[in-house]
Amino acid sequence: MKTDDESRHPPYIVDIRSQPDALQALLDAGWPQECTRLLESLGSFERIVLTGVGSSLQGMYPAYLRLAAAGLPVWWEDTGELLEHDHGSITPDTLVWVTSQSGESAEVAELLDRLAGRPTVLATTNDLDSTLAQAANAVMPLHCGAEHTVGTKSYLNTLVAVGVAVEAALGAGVPDSILHAPEALDTYLGGWDDQLGSISDSVPDASLVVLGRGPSIASARTAGLIIKEAARRPAEGMSVPQFRHGPLEMADDGLVALLFAGSDRDRALNDVMRHDLVATGAHCVWIDAIGSSPTVIETPALTAPIARQVAEILPIQLLTVVLAERIGAEPGKFQRIAKITRTL
């Protein structure tokens, strides 16, 4: 039986609004001992390869940066590229950490078939009966429940599941900010109509780029993905340095640049980009947990590592709703693709 929320809203919006509950379910369930034991031995592997496709891959990016900063031999690779062009990076002594919401994506299934049990496989997935879960040495469930269209709950829970697991592997516990995140998300989404109105006022119709630095690159790239998926609108997500090395040339009054403020160490450099964009006449929208003006979109009040990326994606999800409704489309409704991609 459908709930009142499911009856009144498209499935994509139901998924967005149910993210606080999905995250709380993950936190309540905790991390399986088999995963904890495996991650405690990260230093024993010749290398660590993090892989996935789409938002599953992007959700692992902050954890990749954390592992790299700790001096571990870590790769972060699109599963499709890993299959065809970078398979030499997997050795018998590699930990292959695969994330896939369904556990059935074509690239993931093919990779598992080719690996044939040679390296150790750690799975992060929402389906414990999936091909991925059944082939893995250890499984980290996402606990996000059914997801209908574009990745929302699964992306957010991937950020937290993988991020917290890496922190634990490096000797840290669950950050307090993550424990408070479901409440902060719920408060933010509780102002649904006001948030949509503010975002709509801040983002005019124009060419879109989404920019970030460090862990917020995950937010920028996922934004570029889901704006195309959920709103059928061209958008590109990239790092601030990559944008400066060329694409900045196209900045003018026909460009909207969504710029994540980022962490304390990145904020000053990102602010330089903001001023440079404004100087070209581009419409630069600063995405941050603080501040309120026509050129600032507020996120939930979460600013610690891992939690910041959880907060950053929510206004982007709401933006996809705004953009879809502007063209009279149902946000997040697939017409040409399906929830699970089964073709290489």
Results as ranks from 00 to 15, higher is better:
115 L>S: 05
116 A>L: 05
117 G>K: 09
118 R>Q: 12
118 R>M: 10
119 P>K: 00
121 V>K: 01
124 T>V: 13
124 T>F: 00
125 T>G: 00
126 N>M: 13
126 N>S: 15
127 D>G: 00
128 L>M: 10
130 S>G: 06
131 T>H: 14
131 T>R: 15
132 L>T: 08
132 L>Y: 10
133 A>N: 05
134 Q>W: 02
134 Q>S: 15
134 Q>D: 08
134 Q>F: 03
135 A>Y: 05
135 A>G: 05
137 N>G: 15
138 A>L: 01
139 V>I: 12
139 V>A: 14
139 V>Y: 12
140 M>Y: 09
141 P>W: 11
143 H>D: 10
144 C>I: 00
144 C>H: 11
144 C>F: 07
144 C>S: 09
145 G>Q: 05
145 G>Y: 08
145 G>I: 01
145 G>P: 08
145 G>T: 08
148 H>F: 12
148 H>A: 15
148 H>P: 04
150 V>I: 15
151 G>T: 14
153 K>Q: 05
156 L>R: 00
156 L>S: 04
156 L>W: 00
157 N>F: 01
157 N>A: 02
157 N>L: 01
157 N>M: 02
158 T>E: 03
158 T>L: 02
159 L>R: 07
160 V>I: 14
163 G>L: 01
164 V>M: 00
166 V>K: 06
167 E>K: 07
169 A>V: 03
169 A>S: 11
169 A>K: 10
170 L>V: 04
170 L>N: 09
170 L>A: 10
171 G>P: 06
172 A>T: 13
172 A>V: 05
173 G>N: 06
174 V>C: 14
174 V>K: 01
174 V>D: 07
177 S>C: 04
177 S>N: 03
177 S>A: 15
178 I>C: 11
179 L>Y: 04
179 L>D: 12
179 L>F: 04
181 A>S: 08
183 E>L: 02
183 E>V: 02
183 E>T: 12
186 D>T: 06
186 D>L: 07
186 D>R: 15
187 T>N: 09
188 Y>R: 05
190 G>A: 03
191 G>T: 01
191 G>Y: 02
193 D>R: 14
195 Q>M: 00
195 Q>K: 04
195 Q>T: 00
196 L>E: 01
196 L>N: 06
198 S>T: 03
198 S>M: 00
201 D>E: 14
201 D>Q: 10
202 S>N: 02
203 V>S: 00
203 V>C: 03
203 V>N: 03
204 P>H: 09
205 D>Y: 03
205 D>A: 13
205 D>W: 00
207 S>N: 11
207 S>E: 14
207 S>W: 12
208 L>G: 06
208 L>D: 06
210 V>C: 14
210 V>N: 08
211 L>R: 07
211 L>F: 04
212 G>Q: 05
213 R>F: 09
213 R>W: 13
214 G>R: 11
215 P>G: 02
215 P>H: 14
218 A>S: 15
219 S>Y: 08
221 R>M: 13
221 R>A: 14
223 A>C: 14
224 G>T: 01
225 L>F: 05
228 K>D: 10
228 K>E: 11
230 A>N: 10
230 A>S: 15
231 A>R: 11
232 R>M: 11
232 R>C: 07
